[in-house]
């Protein structure tokens, strides 16, 4: 008798779920009413304030690290003089051309390897071998091959971007559910139709993850590449500032790198949200 009372409903809420459902309601009045997205910014803000306070108190010497206020002022000044925008354009140009080449190459190779056995035999083994090379270690070779102009910089970015795109798109293509391919074949799709309607859309989520990696890798390559005898670009700005002990300008450069990386990541996420609207995690009734 008591057993039947303890189990409330056939499919029903287990006691644990009911308790969970009760929790937030009980705890919420005590919490700050800041939305969760803003709450995440509290601790970084506190850190910056501590940094500023330490600089003002003389605990951090300007030649070790400039105060946040100095950094902001320098950023503003560099923007007004046009110095920062012009270097930024140079760096952006390098990343975009490198990415363009690298992503295209990665996509092309992944399509060849992913869509045909013969292609896989030819392309995949060398790619898997090359990817174990830390590509940044190729800088000396690149300098010998391409000199110290723009070419080695763009080549390095391209190389950094190509591998993540290749690896994720290839595994994405191979990971498409064979049952879906089979069903689509029954319903009359030819090979082209299969690739267009089943295989590529199925590989897209994985490829977009690869694109995010590629962007991260591209920025990293850019930082390294711009240490090679650059006469323009954010990396040049940083190196130049080092000569004059301008830690404020160095930090401005680092911040710009960080913001560019963040911006690129946000862009891919936006693309994901658009292109992958069908995914269960994104679908809303």
């Amino acid at each position: 008798m008591s057993d039947t009372q303890a189990v409330p409903a056939p499919h029903g809420l287990l006691p644990g779920r009911a308790a969970e459902a009760g929790l937030p309601a009980a705890a919420s009045p005590r919490r700050l009413t800041l939305p969760p997205r803003l709450r995440r910014f509290i601790s970084p803000l506190v850190l910056v304030l501590l940094w500023q306070a330490a600089s003002m108190a003389g605990l951090i010497a300007p030649r070790t690290l400039a105060a946040p206020s100095t950094v902001l002022a320098s950023a503003w000044e560099l923007t007004l003089t046009g110095e920062l925008p012009s270097h930024l354009l140079v760096s952006l140009g390098r990343v975009l051309s490198g990415l363009g080449i690298g992503v295209s190459a990665g996509v092309a190779l992944a399509l060849v390897a992913g869509l045909s056995r013969r292609g896989e035999e030819i392309v995949d083994a060398p790619m898997q071998m090359l990817r174990t090379l830390p590509f940044l270690a190729l800088v000396p070779l690149f300098i010998l091959w391409f000199g110290i102009g723009e070419t080695p910089k763009i080549a390095l970015v391209a190389l950094g971007a190509a591998f993540p795109v290749y690896l994720t798109l290839f595994s994405g293509i191979r990971g498409v559910d064979p049952k879906l391919v089979e069903a689509a074949r029954i319903f009359g799709l030819d090979r082209r139709g299969l690739i267009r309607h089943v295989i590529l859309p199925g590989a897209l989520p994985s490829a977009l993850v690869g694109l995010r990696y590629a962007l991260g890798s591209a920025w990293l390559s850019l930082v390294i590449a711009e240490q090679i005898n650059a006469t323009a670009g954010i990396g040049f700005l940083i190196n130049d500032a080092r000569e004059f002990l301008r830690t404020d300008v160095i930090v401005v450069g680092l911040l710009v790198y960080a913001l560019l990386g963040l911006g690129a990541d946000a862009l891919v996420r936006l693309v994901e949200r658009r292109a992958l609207a069908w995914r269960p995690s994104l679908v809303k009734e």
């Binding site: 049952k179 879906l180 089979e182 069903a183 689509a184 029954i186 319903f187 009359g188 799709l189 139709g193 309607h197 089943v198 859309p201 199925g202 897209l204 992958l276 069908w278 995914r279 269960p280």
Partner: peptide, 21 residues
């Protein structure tokens, strides 16, 4: 054929799945 699992393409809407091919 209809299989045990519906085998719908998750990236196509219901009507697009039906109209496939």
């Amino acid at each position: 054929v209809a299989f045990q699992e519906p085998r719908l393409l998750p990236w196509k809407t219901v009507w697009q799945n039906v109209a496939l091919g």
